Amino acid sequence: MKISEILPKEAIIAELEAKTKREVLEELTDAVLRHKPQLDRHRLLEVLLEREKLGSTGIGEGIAIPHGKIDNLDQLVVSFGRSTRGIDFESMDGKPAHLFFLLVAPENCAGTHLRALARIARFLKSATVRRRLGLAATQEEIFNIIQQEDDVF
C-alpha cells in the first residue's frame, strides 16, 4: 500500500490555519470530507478527540498522525496538513508538530489501519522527506513529493 494511493490530492492542505490541536483535527477532517462527504463530521471529530484522550498521536520530530475508526466507511481515508509555524500537539518530545497525516479506517479493518499507520510512520522517519515536505509551497508540490518518496519506501 502506497500513501499516494490512499491520499487524494484534494485532501492535502499546504498551510494549515489551525493554532490548536482541535483546530488541526477540524481542518484535516474537513479535508477528508471533501473526498468522503457522506461522513458525519461531528462523529468523526468525536472519534478523533476520544483517541487523543488516550494519548497524543503527536509522535515527535514534528510529526502527528491522528487516527481513528468509524462506521459507515468502506475504505481507508487520509488527509495531510502542514504548519510551517508548528502547533502544540502534546507530542512525546514536547516540540510543536508541523506535519500531520489524518488516518480514518472502517470500524472492522484493524489490519489495514495498522499497516497504513506503520507505512506513514516509516515514511516520515526520513529526515529528507520531512525537510522536503516542510519546504513545499503548494498542494501539488506536496502531492508530488509524497508520490516520489513513496516509491523509495
Rank of each mutant, 00 (worst) to 15 (best):
H42R: 09
D88K: 02
K53S: 13
A64S: 12
N108C: 01
I63F: 05
L7T: 09
T138E: 13
F143Y: 14
P37D: 00
V24L: 08
R119K: 15
M1S: 14
T138Q: 07
I87V: 13
P37V: 11
R51D: 03
R85D: 12
F153T: 15
E140K: 10
T29I: 05
E26F: 01
R119H: 14
I12T: 07
V78K: 06
L54V: 12
P106L: 03
G62T: 10
F153L: 15
P106R: 05
E90C: 03
P37G: 11
G94T: 12
L44W: 04
A11F: 07
R43M: 02
S126A: 12
R132V: 03
R122T: 14
K21I: 00
G58R: 01
K2R: 15
A105P: 11
A137W: 04
K9E: 15
F153D: 15
P96C: 11
D40K: 01
K36H: 07
E46P: 03
L28A: 05
E17M: 11
V24I: 13
V104T: 13
E50H: 12
D40G: 02
I6K: 08
A116Y: 01
V104F: 04
E52P: 11
L45G: 08
R130D: 06
I145M: 08
I12N: 01
T20M: 08
I3D: 06
R22P: 04
M92D: 01
E5W: 03
R131C: 03
A116W: 02
L28Y: 00
R119D: 03
L33M: 14
R130A: 11
A116L: 04
I6F: 13
D74C: 07
N144P: 03
E27S: 07
V78F: 01
S4C: 13
E27A: 06
N144W: 00
K95M: 15
L44R: 02
M1G: 14
E107N: 07
G55F: 09
A136S: 11
F80P: 07
P37L: 09
K69Y: 04
L99K: 10
D74S: 15
V77Q: 03
I3Q: 05
K125W: 01
K53N: 14
V78R: 04
I145N: 08
D93L: 10
N144A: 10
L124I: 08
A110R: 11
R43L: 13
T20N: 10
L103C: 01
H113M: 04
K2L: 11
